[in-house]
Lab assay of single mutants.
Amino acid sequence: CEICHEVFKSKNVRVLKCGHKYHKGCFKQWLKGQSACPACQ
């Protein structure tokens, strides 16, 4: 996960249209302050 830098250990992964992958919880937190993929912006 590019947000928390932890390895994906479960199926709790969100894959965006751009192809980047994040933990669902991390991405949900990210969206509270941002509106785009962290890696693409």
Rank of each mutant, 00 (worst) to 15 (best):
E2V: 06
L31E: 11
S35I: 08
Y22G: 12
C4G: 01
C37N: 01
H5Q: 14
L16E: 14
K9A: 03
C26T: 00
P38Y: 08
C37A: 03
K17A: 14
G19K: 07
Q41E: 15
K11G: 08
Q29N: 13
C4I: 00
K11T: 13
P38G: 07
K17Y: 02
R14I: 04
S10F: 03
F27P: 10
H5R: 14
K24R: 13
K21E: 13
H23N: 01
V7Y: 04
C26D: 03
R14H: 12
C26F: 01
A36Y: 05
Q29E: 12
G19R: 05
K17F: 05
L31C: 09
K21T: 13
G33K: 12
R14S: 13
R14P: 03
A36D: 14
I3W: 03
E2Q: 10
G33T: 12
Q29L: 09
C26G: 00
N12Q: 13
C37P: 03
C1G: 01
L16K: 06
F27N: 05
A39K: 06
L31T: 12
P38V: 10
K17Q: 12
F27T: 12
L31F: 09
C26Q: 02
H23V: 02
E2K: 09
C4H: 01
G33R: 08
F8L: 07
G25T: 07
K9C: 03
H5L: 14
K32T: 11
K24L: 10
H23Q: 02
G25S: 12
K9D: 04
I3N: 15
Q29M: 05
Q29G: 11
L16W: 05
W30N: 08
Q29C: 09
R14V: 06
G25C: 12
K24G: 14
E2I: 08
S10W: 03
L31D: 09
F27W: 15
F8T: 07
H5W: 04
Y22K: 02
G25R: 14
Q34K: 13
C18F: 00
Q29K: 14
Q41A: 13
C1N: 03
E2F: 05
Y22T: 15
R14A: 06
G25F: 04
K21R: 13
W30Q: 10
I3K: 04
C1D: 05
I3T: 04
Q29S: 11
W30L: 11
P38A: 10
W30F: 12
P38I: 05
L16S: 13
W30E: 13
K17N: 07
K11E: 13
C1E: 03
G19S: 05
G19I: 00
Q34Y: 04
C26R: 00
G19E: 05
H20Q: 00
A36L: 10
F27L: 14
E2R: 06
G19C: 04
A39N: 08
H23G: 02
G33I: 06
K24E: 15
C18W: 00
S35L: 08
H20E: 00
K9I: 02
Q41S: 14
A36P: 14
C1L: 02
E6M: 13
C1W: 00
A36N: 10
W30G: 11
L16M: 10
A39D: 05
C40T: 02
Q34I: 06
A36C: 10
V15P: 10
E2C: 05
K24M: 08
C4Y: 00
A36E: 14
Y22F: 13
F27D: 10
A39P: 09
H23P: 01
C1R: 02
C1V: 02
S35P: 07
C4A: 00
V7D: 15
L31Q: 13
N12Y: 04
L16F: 09
A39G: 13
F8V: 09
F27M: 09
K21Q: 10
C4E: 02
S35A: 13
F27K: 12
E2D: 12
E2P: 04
K21Y: 11
C26I: 00
G25D: 14
C4R: 00
K17T: 12
K28F: 09
C37Q: 02
P38L: 08
Q34F: 04
S10K: 11
C4N: 02
C1Q: 15
A39Y: 04
K32L: 08
C1T: 00
H5A: 13
G33M: 07
G33Q: 12
C40Y: 01
E2G: 09
A39Q: 12
P38N: 04
Q34V: 08
K24F: 13
C18T: 00
G33H: 14
Q29A: 12
K17D: 15
W30R: 09
H20P: 00
C18G: 01
I3V: 03
Q41C: 05
W30A: 12
E6T: 15
K17W: 05
V15G: 07
K9L: 02
R14C: 03
K17H: 12
Q34R: 11
E6F: 02
G25M: 13
C37F: 02
I3D: 09
K24I: 10
V15H: 08
H23M: 03
N12T: 12
H23E: 02
A36W: 07
K28E: 15
Q34P: 11
V7W: 05
K24C: 11
K17R: 08
C40I: 01
K9P: 01
V15C: 07
K24V: 12
C37D: 03
H20A: 02
I3A: 00
A39H: 04
G33V: 08
L16G: 15
C40P: 03
C40M: 01
Q29F: 04
E6P: 01
C26V: 01
H23L: 03
C4D: 02
N12L: 06
C26N: 00
K17L: 06
